[in-house]
Computed example of a mutant assay.
Amino acid sequence: MAESQGFVIQNTMDEIIDGLYVGSSMAETDKEKLKSCSITHILTVASHYPPTHPEDFIYKSISIDDLPEENIIQYFPECNAFISDVLSVGGRILIHCMAGQSRSAAVTVAFIMQRDKLSLEDALQMVKEKRPQIYPNSGFLDQLELYYDLGYQVSANKPLYRRFLISHSAEHFKEYGSIEQVAAGADPSVHKGLPVQRLVRCKKCRRALVTETNILDHQAGAGQIAFSYKKRNSNGMDTPHAFPQNRACSSLFVEPMEWMDGVNEGLLENKIICPKCLAKLGAYNWAGAQCSCGKWITPSFQIHRNRVDEVRQR
């Protein structure tokens, strides 16, 4: 930072690692500064922000607001690939948002986490040493923690990421009354290669329905629970990667599944029917439903235990 007439002026851009700069919108508009730093590429992480110098630099734009509920993790793989390609050929890149504090910082931290296989805390500290004013919002920090838990691989094949997407869809429903996107669990009857220790089957026709990774864990009792993707639960305990169900409950609460009618069409509630014999298994509702133990589950994809068999496999 520099001082001018008693005021502290924050740098518009700072070099974090060799060839990678983080900055504000002022940095993106300062052509002279960009040229002096030999910038060749600009990654814009801001909402509806048009390039200022499209003839002078190669741009990539991610349109996203600086809000905790925004899904920024979905962009980490393509941003990482873009940054890696630039740096691998000796290019120099500016990553910017509006203030150069939240969105651009989150993308930069994600890149460094993946490149150096670092935790969120270590990567964040590394960036802060070069640009102290960075401050990703709380939702972005949660998603960066999730990124670490996912092993830096953003894929709907991973249960934790599906739970994040389900949680994101539930928040969208609360705000707008509609479902934006659904991350449905893989149908174990179709995807035969799934590693399975516990299988839930229709009691009438024995068709495979869900595995242990599709089941939502909750403790019996009053209160409310939602799909959780965070590393720690409300009690501070580590959230397991397999999700055992409380045996005292008369229902299983599961993820939305590929075979459920209406899930991919955005229906807000519907019956859950066995896709083979059409036996009624339960119901789902994005507004939630109450378990027999008193817990309110949001969203609720509820399968009655007396309609299915649970099989443990070696």
Rank of each mutant, 00 (worst) to 15 (best):
V8F: 09
Q114A: 10
C291S: 09
L252I: 07
E269F: 04
I83H: 00
H48W: 12
Y148R: 09
F301H: 02
V263P: 00
V45K: 01
G294H: 10
I272F: 00
I215W: 02
H48Y: 11
G100I: 12
M13C: 14
G221E: 12
D85I: 10
N233T: 04
K158Y: 03
Y229N: 02
M26S: 11
A105Y: 06
S119T: 13
Y284N: 06
K276Y: 08
P195I: 05
N270T: 08
L124C: 06
S251Y: 04
A156I: 10
D18R: 06
E175A: 12
C291Y: 08
N80M: 07
Q219Y: 13
I9H: 09
Q302N: 11
S178G: 15
I9E: 04
G193Q: 07
L199A: 04
G91N: 03
S25W: 13
L146S: 02
P299C: 15
V182E: 00
S88C: 03
I297T: 08
M237C: 11
V210I: 14
K280H: 10
K128H: 01
C291A: 07
Q181S: 15
V89G: 07
T213S: 05
L267W: 07
F164R: 03
K33G: 14
P275D: 08
S102P: 00
F57K: 11
W286S: 03
E255K: 07
Y75S: 01
D56S: 13
N214Y: 05
E55Q: 15
V86P: 00
W259S: 02
R115E: 04
K271Y: 09
P54E: 13
E78P: 08
L209H: 01
P244E: 02
G294N: 10
I83N: 04
I134A: 12
K204E: 12
Q290H: 13
A106V: 09
V200F: 07
R198A: 06
D14K: 06
R307C: 15
Q101F: 14
F164S: 01
D116R: 07
G236W: 03
S167D: 11
L194C: 05
C249A: 14
K204M: 13
K33V: 12
S61D: 10
P275S: 08
P188V: 05
V22Y: 08
E129Q: 05
R115N: 03
L268H: 00
S88D: 01
G294T: 11
A2V: 14
E70L: 04
T29V: 08
F140D: 02
R131A: 14
F7H: 05
P50S: 10
Q153N: 04
D85C: 12
G288A: 14
F253N: 01
I73C: 01
P159D: 00
E69G: 06
N80C: 03
R103K: 12
T298Q: 12
A242T: 01
A186G: 06
Y161N: 02
K35D: 06
S292D: 15
E269W: 02
L216N: 00
C205F: 12
F243K: 01
C97I: 15
Q313W: 09
Y21L: 14
